[in-house]
């Protein structure tokens, strides 16, 4: 066990898999020599050589194409897209090429690629660096989308993603990179894709979220416990495609109330999908409508009002109170 930040856990996952599987390759802009703009790949080129861990020219579509071609050739590329907003430059390779490869080739080829990318609000990053674009990826059949909230999950989920035979979009929240440390096993281990985690058990209301919002949600749950003595069950989705509906439904059947929190804009996102599916499965168990706490339907706010734009503890508490008093 080592006490690691999330970025150290992410690096450790890549190190484990580079060591275990000679077909794993790590590349992207600035990931080789300097180890990435956030140092996620620091030291990996030195340890595994510039053939397996390398810098690419500055062109995201080229990076995506390189990954797809390598995937067809039997490699397992881990391609870093330096910031989330840059994915639009390679959206064709991610969504139209990688995610469709198995289907188009009737199963002859696959694209066992991990696209890693930092995202997320709360650190006042420049525009198009922090957007929550998981909704776009979730609407891409063939893709899996993983968003860890802590160092332990980050390592286990990234190892699962690298070993997965399909493309995985792996989103790393900027605010979580170095905000806290946690015990992480030194050996390789997996956290399964598609399984949510119950962060805190509770009996009165289910709070469903993912990414950095897990921590905001826990604070809101604490506050509600303190102010009203309400017991909030907090669930970390960990994977937003595929969704672990079973865990959510089990929880809602117990608590009869739920809210979903996401950093992304309100409309047609992960929260909407969670609510639709939970309602389909458990409407007769519900005592209140399932509420969404989200960012408004605007482009992501510039730094000055970022904190107001993102869901806050106060907004989540208000949502919980509304659902509890409904």
């Amino acid at each position: 066990m080592t006490n690691m930040t999330m970025i150290e856990a992410i690096r450790d996952a890549m190190r484990c898999e580079l060591e275990r599987d000679p077909t794993v390759m790590v590349f992207g802009e600035d990931v080789g020599h300097v180890g990435g703009v956030f140092r996620a790949t620091e030291g990996l080129q030195k340890q595994f050589g510039a053939t397996r861990v390398f810098d690419t020219p500055l062109a995201e579509s080229g990076i995506g194409g390189l990954a797809v071609g390598l995937g067809v050739q039997g490699f397992r590329p881990v391609a870093e897209i330096q910031f989330i907003g840059f994915i639009f430059e390679t959206m064709d390779q991610i969504c139209s090429q990688a995610a469709r490869m198995r289907y188009r080739s009737g199963g002859r080829y696959s694209a066992p690629i991990v696209f890693r990318t930092p995202f997320g609000g709360g650190v006042k990053a420049p525009e198009l660096h922090g957007d929550s674009l998981e909704g776009l990826m979730v609407q891409t059949p063939g893709m899996k989308v993983v968003i860890p909230s802590n160092p332990y999950d980050a390592k286990g989920l990234l190892i699962s993603a690298i070993r997965d035979d399909d493309p995985v979009f792996y989103m790393e929240h900027l605010k979580l990179y170095r905000s806290f440390r946690a015990e992480v096993p030194d050996e390789p281990y997996t956290v399964p894709i598609g399984v949510a985690g119950v962060v805190r058990e509770g009996s009165d209301v289910t709070l469903i979220t993912y990414g950095a919002m897990v921590h905001t949600a826990v604070q809101a749950a604490d506050e509600l416990q303190r102010t009203r003595g309400a017991s909030v069950e907090v669930i970390d989705l960990r994977t937003v495609m595929p969704l672990d509906i079973e865990t959510l439904v089990t929880s809602v059947k117990k608590t009869h109330r739920a809210i979903v929190v996401q950093e992304a804009q309100r409309t047609a996102g992960v929260a909407a999908e969670v609510i639709a599916q939970v309602t389909e499965e458990a409407i007769l168990h519900l005592e209140a409508p399932i509420m969404r706490i989200t960012a408004p339907d605007t482009v992501m706010a510039f730094g000055q009002i970022e904190e107001e734009w993102l869901p806050s503890v106060a907004r989540i508490v208000a949502g919980l109170v509304h659902v509890l008093d409904f």
Binding site: T51, G65, L66, A67, V68, G69, G71, V72, F75, Q93
Partner: peptide, 25 residues
């Protein structure tokens, strides 16, 4: 071979990846 590409140009960036794969092997 790959299947015929519909998105004009996508096969050109993929070609670089295929070529790298051949070289690595």
């Amino acid at each position: 071979v790959l299947m015929p590409q519909i998105i004009i140009g996508a096969q050109i960036v993929e070609c670089a990846g295929i070529a790298l794969g051949l070289q690595l092997k």
